[in-house]
Design a binder for these strands. Structure first.
Lengths: 230, 230
DNA sequence: GTATGCATGTCGCAA
DNA sequence: TTGCGACGTGCATAC
């Protein structure tokens, strides 16, 4: 990885056109050819970038460009699309390369997939006598997170979110509408389950007869641990 | 901005829990307290990060941690949420600070507004005899991208997207529901126009009687160019 | 390879 | 602050 601190201006042409006026920035050139241009602030998103697969090449500086103060021009082209990034270097303050090696990668815990697995394994969390039919029950408009049966054998469609928002309720509503047209499934009840449910989402859901369940991730994991122990 | 190349392991606890095993990485500490942890590869997204507002502090290294090879511990805490990032430094290979100043920011030249303008100017793309009523037709729940009339004088509401997704169909459905309650407008037909329409979105749209139209941006631009020429 | 939905999404705007 | 829509969304995964 090469890290350069330089005064530069940047132009991007691809899915849109964008321009960065002259300023001092950090340029990160990664081993796979990708380039990131960061300012001292903002978020993790660079001001501008080129995603791999791509490659960087030096372009000869014309006389008029040199007169304008440009000392180097780096052209980054994407290998598959026509995306292009041109970095006009005016002054380099620092330029260092480091060998980082391959990263072992991030280990995540607590994403929706994991939550879904835990809830499916402990579907009785939703109510006594509940039984799992299957995860990712497929419909014409997408997969329902969990399909279950309640204590009376009636179908229950569960939409699972980390944060329960209005669009999650809309999603579940679409599934319910479709599934309730299927005589083999109807009537299907809806359960909106999330670690946190926004008030407006709850209002909308309950107005539509959808039950809201706030999940305790740690408690679910605790149950899993308990089962693992015994 | 401070840029550090170090062998480190990282733990994040917040919206989820995540762990980075020991490896050499780039640590970017920005002026606003935010921290980015990058590997030599991947995309513009860091392996791990903390968004501002947040602050970094040094934590004293316990004896057993020192025995494990840890020389420094940086703790990054978010000021508003309980999000926390702990960086265990084992070895620092490079540590440099640079004054970057405030960035003038990115100047974008988008394509979205342009597409709407082009379609409005060539509304007959949607069908012979179509006539533009107006762009950004305002309703109580938001502006409809384009309102037009078909060859029979009936109203047509057009929702325009670069990528036609289910969300866009929902949006248009809400508009249509509202507009069809207005005796001055009803009946209003719906047209879902995008450069690309996802199959599931198409299914949902057609199930609701909404017509799907795939737009050719280059062709529309070509028509505009042609008009500009003659 | 294409298609689909999640994301520590982030970001910006408006009410 | 919350809601809502766009993003050069990126990204993994199932088909």
């Amino acid at each position: 990885m090469r890290v350069v601190i330089a005064k530069c201006s940047v132009d991007y042409a691809g899915r849109l056109n964008a321009h960065l006026p002259l300023a001092t920035r950090l340029l990160m050139l990664k081993g796979d050819g990708s380039v990131l241009i960061h300012s001292d602030g903002g978020s993790y998103k660079p001001l501008n970038w080129m995603s791999p697969p791509c490659s960087v090449s030096d372009v000869e500086v014309e006389q008029d460009q040199a007169d304008a103060g440009i000392t180097e021009i780096w052209k980054v082209v994407h290998h598959k699309t026509a995306d292009m990034l041109v970095i006009n270097i005016h002054e380099i303050f620092s330029d260092a390369s480091h060998e980082l090696g391959v990263d072992p990668g991030l280990i995540k815990d607590g994403v929706e997939a994991h939550l879904q697995k835990l809830l499916a394994e402990h579907i009785e969390t939703l109510g006594e006598g509940y039984q799992l039919v299957r995860r990712e029950y497929f419909t014409a408009i997408g997969p329902v997170d969990i399909l279950a049966r309640d204590e009376n054998g009636g179908h229950v469609a569960v939409e699972l979110k980390r944060r329960g928002d209005i669009d999650g309720v809309e999603q579940l509503t679409r599934y319910l509408e479709l599934m309730n047209r299927d005589p083999l499934l109807a009537p299907v009840q809806g359960v909106f389950a999330a670690q946190e449910i926004k008030p407006q989402a709850r209002t909308l859901a309950e107005d539509r007869g959808i039950r809201c369940v706030v999940l305790d991730y740690d408690a679910l994991r605790g149950m899993a641990d308990h089962n693992a122990l015994f």
